[in-house]
Every structure is written in C-alpha cells, then in structure tokens.
Amino acid sequence: MPVQLTIVGASGSVSGPVSPASSYLVQAPYEGRIFSLLLDLGPGSFGALYRYLDPADLDAVALSHLHPDHCVDVCGLYVAGRYAPTAPWRRIPLYGPGGTPERLQRAYEVDGATEPGLSIAEWFEHRVWAAEQTVGPFTVTVARVAHPVEAYALRVDENTPGGGSLVYTGDTGPTPVLAELARGADLLLSEAAFLGAADNPRDLHLTGADAAAVADAAGVGVLVLTHIPPWHDPEQVRDEARRVTRRPVELAAPGVRWTVGASA
C-alpha cells in the first residue's frame, strides 16, 4: 500500500453542514502494519474518524496550530482514550506548537476542576515541532507560515525510495515559504478560505488563486483545496484556482481518498 490521504474533515473555520472542520488521515506501511498519522482535529472530526479507522489505532497526531477549528477535538480523543470500553488506550505522540499541553488543558477543564488520573496536558506524549522529525514511516518537515498565531505548514515524505510526498498548508496567508516547502511534492493540500477580493485581511488565509500559484511555483502533482468555510461555494473557489493553473485542482470532502506517490 502506498501513502494514502483520507479527508476526515474539510470545512474551514467552523464545522459545516456536510463536513467536520479540518482533519486529514495520512497512512503508509510501517513495520508490517499500517501507520496512521492524523493532521489536525477540528470540531466534529473525532467522531467522523470512526468511519475510517478505530481511533485507538492512531499512531500520532500533528497539529498545525492551536486555533480551535484545528485542535479542539483532541479533547474527544482524550475522553475516548480514558473512558471508552477499550480504554485505557496507549498514549501516542502529539506534535504541535509550543504551549500545546496548556492550550488543550484550557479547552478541556472547567473552572479548575480536575479528574482523577492523567490530565489532557499529561495524557499525550507532547512534542514541540522541530524543523524536521521522523514520525513512523515519514519525515515531517515544518515551516512557520503567515497567520496570527504560531502556525506551521507540514511536509510529509515517506521514507522509502520513490515514496510519496504531500504538503499541508495549515492556515496561512500568502508567503514564499509555502512554495519552498512544497517543491516537487506529489500533492498540495491547501487551505483556500478566502474568495478573491482586494480587501482580504493580510496574513490570514489563501484564496483558490493563491493556492494555485503556490502549486505552480512548487511544481506539485495535484492541488487539493480545503478549509473552505460553509459560507463560500467550493466550486467558485476551485474556478478561481483553475483560472491560474492548468494542473489538476480537486476539492477536499469527507471520505475522499488520494493515493500519493509514484504508484498513484
């Protein structure tokens, strides 16, 4: 099995009527089994994850940044890991920006009340992003992007000859680091929360056209647009991208899966 990307949630900024918020499952063979890395866990995505695997089988979680639409359902993963019939689940690595344990503790706890046992800040094996790290069968390289909080784009390369590579922008405004990080990747999973407009705020989000420009500059194989909020028409976002690039432009939606790499 080559690298596979499955969309768990693709709605931008909030969960939507047909999709949870951002969450993406990346899987590849590793040590005689399938390794499962989850990128972000936005509202509604933890429950939806059960459609694709038993969440107890997750091997690692990676958070691009700590806005709630990308991380708040880590609380659900923690609850299941402690209280589901098969609990306690094994503790797994959770990669994120500095301050991730404290951020999750603020999201979970109420008025300082605590529960017996490990808190959410202690449950995971918290690991602060380094420029590059090995995560199971993958090398994950990160780059700081243009967003109001500490936020990262993530590049996931399979550590085998000819292995697949994908880049997830997380949330970001236009920045040259995206094309640098995505150079030659098989797939670019890019946020596209804005429609083209002269008054879009700086350093916040991309348009479909911005994402297409990155895809062309980086020479990626396919562009997948995600993080489109429910108040925008995804086809309009894709049309803006297609006016910029001739490479394939696809839309992320729950359950859609891509095979990433030479055998795609």
Rank of each mutant, 00 (worst) to 15 (best):
A211I: 00
E102N: 02
F124N: 01
T6R: 14
S36C: 14
P148I: 10
P43Q: 10
D157F: 00
H147Y: 15
P201Q: 04
E102L: 11
R144L: 05
D233G: 08
L104A: 13
T207W: 08
G173V: 03
P101R: 07
A56W: 03
H65Y: 11
V128H: 00
W231M: 10
H65C: 13
L5Y: 01
D54Q: 09
A241N: 04
V249S: 02
A211R: 02
A185M: 01
T134N: 08
Q133K: 05
L187Q: 04
I92M: 15
S22E: 12
Y108F: 14
A182P: 03
P17F: 00
S36P: 09
D157M: 05
P68F: 08
T134K: 08
W89Y: 13
A80F: 13
V61G: 04
R91A: 09
L154G: 00
A62I: 02
A28F: 06
Q4Y: 02
D199Q: 04
L94I: 02
T259N: 00
G81Q: 07
S263L: 14
P148T: 13
L206A: 12
V167L: 05
G81M: 04
G9S: 03
G196C: 03
P248S: 01
G117K: 06
P234Q: 03
L178T: 11
E191P: 08
A215T: 03
